[in-house]
Design a binder for these strands. Structure first.
Lengths: 98, 98
DNA sequence: ATAATAATTTGAAAGTTTTAAAACTATTTA
DNA sequence: TAAATAGTTTTAAAACTTTCAAATTATTAT
């Protein structure tokens, strides 16, 4: 792989992260997860943000695919957690600015 | 204006910035402008990036509308300059990571 | 004035994203 | 095993984005 290809690949990763953060609803979900680390199931997001559950699923998947959130099943529930590693690498300072 | 409305407004600004950066071509344009501060006309971008000129105009406008770039006419040419203030406020560290 | 050069706008086609309802799958509880 | 709960997938419509060619506007040079 050439240096140019590595740069393009990194840009695709960046673009994916930025696209994931390019909707107000998803920024709000990130803020919610940042401030509610103990109440972070899909259902909690549905309830507190007044969104349709299929829509929460859809948006969470986009955040997951951009490596911004990890999702861990816990019984019936799934818990979403921010991926500090990705934020640190690509958006240092962003979470604190929320 | 309530605090909630201010937060939403800020989120809209953030979302606009992230949307502007959510395309590889626009990230490449930002990188180009970052590294070629003296050769920053639309034509220079067209030439060096091999894009259609109407397309460069379109993408530059999106960056401009997100306050990421300022555009100054200089005779027949227009020069694009990165808006350090916006990058510093919303994406500290980003330009250096390019 | 006319031609040449630089950039923008328009319009149409192709592609992508968002939304919400309904159907579905997985897990727990009775 | 059946019902309840949590979350996902599918589908289709509406809204939005990207591309490129052609027409247009603005500026400079002859």
């Amino acid at each position: 792989m050439t240096i140019e290809q590595l740069i393009v690949k990194d840009d695709e990763k960046r673009a994916k992260i930025f696209k994931a953060l390019s909707e107000v609803k998803r920024i709000e979900m990130i803020r919610y997860l940042h401030h509610n680390r103990d109440n972070n199931t899909c259902g909690a997001i549905v309830k507190s943000m007044g969104m349709d559950k299929s829509n929460v699923s859809y948006h969470l998947k986009i955040l997951y695919e951009a490596d911004l959130v990890s999702i861990i099943r816990n019984g019936q529930n799934k818990n979403g957690q921010l991926r500090e590693d990705t934020f640190t690498e690509f958006l240092p300072g962003f979470l604190d600015s929320l």
